[in-house]
């Protein structure tokens, strides 16, 4: 399954964390660690396998754990309506 970030969101990495601004709702979210990496992977249009590999490499975890983290966080992002299915 492929996803895209909602068009009307603004985001930027600042001092190691990714900040997402939802101007329509006047909300700001902060992501760090694997969550920030997943967000940036989605923003760059990477496939799930590539994002999971990046997580496994950056956080020295096994591929299965990285894939599970990615799946769980993607569900959270969908539930929060920050990303959409393509």
């Amino acid at each position: 399954m492929a996803y895209k970030i909602r068009k009307d969101l603004a985001y930027r990495r600042i001092a190691g964390e990714v900040y997402i601004v939802d101007a329509a709702k006047s909300e700001m979210r902060e992501l760090n660690g694997p969550a920030a990496l997943i967000w940036e992977g989605l923003a760059a249009g990477k496939k799930g396998e590539a994002i999971a590999s990046a997580i496994a490499e950056e956080f020295e975890t096994d591929a299965a754990t990285a894939r599970a983290d990615l799946a769980a966080f993607t569900e959270e992002l969908l539930a929060a309506r920050l990303i959409e299915k393509l």
């Binding site: 068009k7 009307d8 969101l9 603004a10 985001y11 930027r12 600042i14 001092a15 964390e17 900040y19 601004v21 101007a23 329509a24 700001m28 902060e30």
Partner: peptide, 28 residues
């Protein structure tokens, strides 16, 4: 901390447009 500074800075930033371009420029 950076997060508390950024949070208050954006909260106190006065913008009358709500488009993503405005937010991107404000974040930048």
């Amino acid at each position: 901390t950076v997060p508390e500074a950024l949070r208050l800075l954006l909260r106190c930033s006065v913008n009358f447009e709500a488009g993503p371009g405005t937010s991107e420029r404000a974040l930048s």
